[in-house]
Computed example of a mutant assay.
Amino acid sequence: MLWIVARTVVYGLVVYDFEGLRQEFLDAVAPLIDAGTLKVPEDRVEGLANAPVLFCKLMRGENRGKAGIEVA
Protein backbone atom coordinates (compact mmCIF):
# COMPACT_ATOMS: atom_id res chain seq x y z
CA MET A 1 0.00 0.00 0.00
CA LEU A 2 2.85 2.40 0.78
CA TRP A 3 4.19 1.95 -2.75
CA ILE A 4 0.90 3.16 -4.18
CA VAL A 5 0.76 6.20 -1.87
CA ALA A 6 4.37 7.15 -2.69
CA ARG A 7 3.83 6.39 -6.40
CA THR A 8 6.90 4.19 -6.35
CA VAL A 9 8.12 2.64 -9.58
CA VAL A 10 10.13 -0.57 -9.34
CA TYR A 11 12.35 -1.71 -12.19
CA GLY A 12 14.10 -5.05 -12.42
CA LEU A 13 17.76 -5.26 -13.34
CA VAL A 14 18.47 -7.78 -16.06
CA VAL A 15 22.10 -8.33 -16.98
CA TYR A 16 21.17 -8.81 -20.64
CA ASP A 17 20.10 -5.16 -20.76
CA PHE A 18 23.85 -4.39 -20.72
CA GLU A 19 25.04 -7.06 -23.15
CA GLY A 20 26.46 -4.38 -25.44
CA LEU A 21 28.90 -3.37 -22.68
CA ARG A 22 30.26 -6.89 -22.08
CA GLN A 23 33.53 -6.49 -23.98
CA GLU A 24 34.23 -3.08 -22.44
CA PHE A 25 33.70 -4.62 -18.99
CA LEU A 26 35.94 -7.60 -19.73
CA ASP A 27 38.69 -5.35 -21.11
CA ALA A 28 38.60 -3.23 -17.95
CA VAL A 29 38.20 -5.92 -15.29
CA ALA A 30 40.09 -8.99 -16.55
CA PRO A 31 43.55 -7.40 -16.18
CA LEU A 32 42.72 -6.37 -12.60
CA ILE A 33 41.68 -9.91 -11.68
CA ASP A 34 44.76 -11.39 -13.39
CA ALA A 35 47.05 -8.97 -11.52
CA GLY A 36 45.40 -9.79 -8.19
CA THR A 37 44.33 -6.16 -7.76
CA LEU A 38 40.63 -7.03 -7.81
CA LYS A 39 39.52 -10.00 -5.78
CA VAL A 40 36.11 -11.58 -6.31
CA PRO A 41 34.58 -12.44 -2.92
CA GLU A 42 32.96 -15.81 -2.49
CA ASP A 43 31.77 -18.08 0.28
CA ARG A 44 32.71 -21.72 -0.20
CA VAL A 45 32.04 -24.88 1.74
CA GLU A 46 33.40 -28.36 1.18
CA GLY A 47 31.03 -31.23 0.49
CA LEU A 48 27.31 -31.52 -0.15
CA ALA A 49 26.71 -32.17 3.54
CA ASN A 50 27.52 -28.49 4.18
CA ALA A 51 25.22 -27.20 1.44
CA PRO A 52 22.28 -26.53 3.81
CA VAL A 53 24.48 -24.35 6.02
CA LEU A 54 25.60 -22.30 3.04
CA PHE A 55 22.06 -22.06 1.70
CA CYS A 56 20.74 -20.75 5.02
CA LYS A 57 23.57 -18.22 5.14
CA LEU A 58 22.65 -17.14 1.61
CA MET A 59 18.96 -16.77 2.49
CA ARG A 60 19.81 -14.63 5.54
CA GLY A 61 21.97 -12.36 3.39
CA GLU A 62 25.12 -13.25 5.32
CA ASN A 63 27.16 -14.34 2.32
CA ARG A 64 29.77 -12.31 0.45
CA GLY A 65 29.73 -12.60 -3.31
CA LYS A 66 29.18 -15.99 -4.87
CA ALA A 67 28.22 -19.04 -2.83
CA GLY A 68 29.88 -22.26 -3.93
CA ILE A 69 30.11 -25.86 -2.85
CA GLU A 70 33.29 -27.82 -3.51
CA VAL A 71 32.71 -31.47 -4.34
CA ALA A 72 35.29 -34.10 -5.20
Rank of each mutant, 00 (worst) to 15 (best):
A49M: 04
A35V: 10
D34A: 11
R44W: 11
E46C: 08
E24A: 15
Y11C: 12
L38A: 06
E46D: 00
N50A: 07
L21F: 15
L48W: 08
V71A: 02
G36R: 09
R64P: 00
D17N: 13
A28E: 07
L13V: 12
Y16Q: 11
G65P: 01
A28I: 03
L21Y: 15
V29T: 05
A30I: 14
A30K: 14
I33L: 06
Q23N: 12
V71Q: 07
K39V: 15
R60Q: 03
L26S: 00
P52Q: 09
G47A: 02
I4G: 13
A30E: 14
R7W: 07
T37P: 10
A72Y: 01
V15F: 10
L13H: 12
T37W: 04
T8P: 04
G12D: 15
I4C: 10
V10S: 11
F25E: 00
V40K: 03
D17L: 07
A51W: 07
V14L: 15
W3R: 13
G68W: 00
R22H: 10
L21Q: 15
R7C: 08
Y16I: 15
V5H: 08
V10E: 01
D43W: 11
N63V: 14
N63M: 09
A51C: 07
D17A: 12
D27I: 04
R7A: 14
V9G: 08
P41V: 00
M1L: 05
N50V: 06
D43N: 15
V14F: 14
D34Q: 03
G68H: 07
V45I: 03
G68Y: 08
G68A: 14
M59K: 11
G12W: 09
P41N: 05
L54S: 02
G47S: 04
A72C: 03
G20M: 03
L48K: 04
L32T: 02
G12L: 13
L38T: 08
L2P: 14
W3D: 13
F25C: 00
C56N: 14
D43H: 04
D34C: 09
G36W: 02
P31S: 01
V14P: 02
R44I: 11
V10I: 06
Y16L: 10
L32D: 01
P52Y: 04
A35D: 04
A30Q: 09
G36K: 10
L48P: 13
E62H: 08
L32E: 07
R7P: 09
W3Q: 12
R60P: 01
V40L: 13
G47D: 05
F18Y: 06
T8W: 01
E62K: 04
P52C: 09
Y16D: 14
V53M: 13
E24P: 05
V29M: 02
E19D: 13
V71W: 08
E62F: 04
A67W: 06
N50R: 07
L58D: 09
G12N: 11
T8Q: 08
L26F: 09
I4T: 12
A49S: 05
G20N: 07
L13R: 06
V5L: 13
G61E: 00
R7M: 12
V15G: 14
A67Q: 15
T8R: 02
L48S: 09
E70R: 10
R60F: 02
Y11P: 04
L21P: 13
D34R: 10
